[in-house]
Amino acid sequence: MSMRILCIEHLKRLREEPIKIYLGGEAEVRIYSDFVAKKRRKKGYRIDELDAFLRKTRTKMEARIISSARRAGIPTPIVLDVDEETILMERINGEPLKNIMNRKLSRMVGEYTARLHTAGIIHGDITPMNLIYCDGKIYFVDFGLAFYDTRIEARGVDVHIYFESLKAYFDNWEDLRDAFVEGYLSGNFDKAEEVLDRAEEIEKRGRYVERRLAED
């Protein structure tokens, strides 16, 4: 396979000074006036084999999934260009849910998440930081850890991660969780109840490890 490179116009634009640089968990996000460049730079802490593998596969998968989520009716930024380690996408100039979270918004996250899951997509990191409210819609912006999976377990973990992030950020997390559940159940996703049950079960795992250690 030949290496994919960004078009000249985009390469030029990347030389401009970004409005903001955000150093995330695995990628550097440069925000420009009308687009965002997400670049997975080399991480010096991990060995080359693992580093190259993660950067390449994640970038490729992320670009693919952003497009298929969009086709499934979930608001996402439009992908403008991709190379081996960079994705250029439309900038969603709204407010992260982290700053404006309420019951209604959490319910909407539930609706969209059910739609993602119906399309066979697992987001992998649904948190109020990765959701942007803009023009009455909630955009899912970070598909960096997303993958395709239709198993209940994967969907359950996806929901569990959102619940955990609510717990970490908001004191009224129980209310927000209930709103999400309402939204998740509101569509016609036939596995919705099963997934929510699984999410509850997952919460209980990993917490009784001492006991399980003893049972070995």
């Binding site: 970490a168 950020y169 490890v209």
Partner: peptide, 26 residues
């Protein structure tokens, strides 16, 4: 038995991430 990411938030410490199955030592 434990593998967790913990940080302070107001009057409590909170677990922001943790193992979904077993601890690393285990």
């Amino acid at each position: 038995g434990n593998s967790q990411i913990i940080a302070r938030r107001g009057k409590n410490y909170r677990v922001f991430g943790e193992t979904l199955d077993i601890g690393l030592g285990n």
